[in-house]
Design a binder for these strands. Sequence first.
DNA 1: AGGGGCTGCGACATCAATGTAGCAAGAAAT
DNA 2: ATTTCTTGCTACATTGATGTCGCAGCCCCT
Lengths: 188, 188
Amino acid sequence: MAAKPLRADAERSVRAILDAAQRVLSANPAASMEQIAEAAGVARTTVHRRFANREALLRAMGLWAWQRVKEAIEAARPMTAPPMVAMHQATANVLAVKDSWTFALDNADAADPETAAVREEVAALRDNAFAAARDVGIFAPDVDLAWLARVYVALISESVHGQEEAGDPDVLATRVIDTLLHGFGPRS
Amino acid sequence: MAAKPLRADAERSVRAILDAAQRVLSANPAASMEQIAEAAGVARTTVHRRFANREALLRAMGLWAWQRVKEAIEAARPMTAPPMVAMHQATANVLAVKDSWTFALDNADAADPETAAVREEVAALRDNAFAAARDVGIFAPDVDLAWLARVYVALISESVHGQEEAGDPDVLATRVIDTLLHGFGPRS
DNA sequence: AGGGGCTGCGACATCAATGTAGCAAGAAAT
DNA sequence: ATTTCTTGCTACATTGATGTCGCAGCCCCT
């Protein structure tokens, strides 16, 4: 979709706007394009030059963020590494991305086909990994995979917000997976 | 805070507006006051008569919704019923409220002292119940209560959204609590 | 060095939402 | 029945966000 290779400075502007939009909008979802432009250190007209309208900006943000999530998962080599290792690594990586792109991830336009495609790839990676983990005995054989996936995503979201202290991704990932596996009941 | 006892018809208008706002805003958080008025079956000016501005409306919605959550918990008699029973009942009750007031609950103004007070009462009820459950052996003795509470809330939210089929509150509550207690790992 | 993109700035034009006011008609409370 | 409150309507004022243009000047690329 990189139809026109942008010049270096234009590329920089786009990135600055995306970053600023994430920061500003996560603080105030109703923020104006002007506030975003200011935070990005560019003129308001430049934002409009790069993104026709607010919707287009949101779309680009969502796509960008989900692509980074996909990269985060793939970096854990979920198809080749041992399931438990891959799960931990992928979780830690995703937590790092989620931490700084929560708004974009949560507000990605579901109607955009390009973003939807990436999201589906992410979902597929995740679901395959879970199925593999189940087959290896990490999860119960009769586990409800759909509910498992939803809970997993919810735990990741929960891990990230309201954290004053940044929190080591590895520690957070450990807690997520431990909770996912055993819950809070007494360990027999 | 019921400074002025409203006349019956005014009371009806307020309720209609609150309900409509929840419906409309959950579909589109950027909806205008006019759209809300239309959905409520009242004139736009009437909305402004009852709620000075958008902020006031949001505030009232959040307060209203949180009060209903508090009632939902209290209806389960968390201080007197056996912990496991109370927990199940409270969860089911809250799920019902959450199902129809998600937007108001999630977007309640944290800066409003009145709403904050109710939320704190809700948090206290919840935390007491969890502590009691732990003391009775339902949760592990060394359980991280703060993390437990966050996960619990996340599971409730997750139970409610994306559900095409309404879902029996009791079934959903059972799943939430089961997940909370045991996670997804093999049961020994 | 030169050509062409990219940016900041200022100026406009629109548009939608917000908030206010007054009045006549209808509903509620006593 | 009468008084008081509430509502719908219409009209108006204001504000803030959007989106567009053109131009002078700077930055990139080759």
